[in-house]
């Protein structure tokens, strides 16, 4: 039995503790905003926050998050009003949208560490997140816009 906190809710799980957090979130808790893209830490679609830092849920085992706080896209803001979520909609960033929760969670971690990132810092922080639709130039714009709005708060 392990205990963890997801989006502010205390949860317990007595199944396979070697299960990656990704499948626990999606299949057990029904939090499908965290996406499966590669299962190997190569694409960033499953990015969540572990105690505030961006991690790949597909590479994070349940036993390693016991007692920790997880935030998923569903918990980034209550009403979808995080400055990044606002900026993403303002710039009409998504095409298919599938990778965007992971992109936003990665960007949120970036802005927490670096409230006003340079374009090079944006590229470096976001280069683990693949978008096959090719929304990269808009992702850069939206991150800059959110930074101006004070997304680090």
């Amino acid at each position: 039995m392990i205990s963890l906190t997801v989006n502010g809710h205390a949860l317990q799980f007595d199944g396979d503790q070697d299960m990656p957090l990704l499948w626990y979130l999606r299949d057990i808790e029904g939090l499908t905003g965290t996406k499966f893209g590669c299962g190997a830490g190569l694409c960033g679609a499953c990015t969540v926050h572990l105690d505030g830092a961006a991690v790949r849920a597909c590479q994070t085992l349940l036993k390693d998050v016991a007692g920790h706080k997880i935030t998923t896209i569903e918990g980034l803001s209550v009403e979808g009003t995080h400055p990044l979520q606002v900026a993403w909609q303002h710039a009409n960033v998504p095409q298919c949208g599938y990778c965007q929760p992971g992109q936003i969670m990665q960007a949120a971690a970036l802005l927490r560490e670096t409230p006003h990132p340079s374009e090079a810092q944006i590229d470096e922080a976001m280069s683990g997140n693949i978008c096959r639709c090719g929304t990269y130039t808009r992702i850069r714009s939206a991150i800059k816009e959110a930074a101006e709005q004070g997304a680090s708060q």
């Binding site: 998923t72 569903e74 979808g80 979520q85 993403w88 909609q89 009409n92 998504p94 949208g97």
Partner: peptide, 10 residues
């Protein structure tokens, strides 16, 4: 679908 996408609801 913008709102649903950025909130993980899509």
């Amino acid at each position: 679908d913008g709102f649903n996408i950025v909130t993980g609801r899509a």
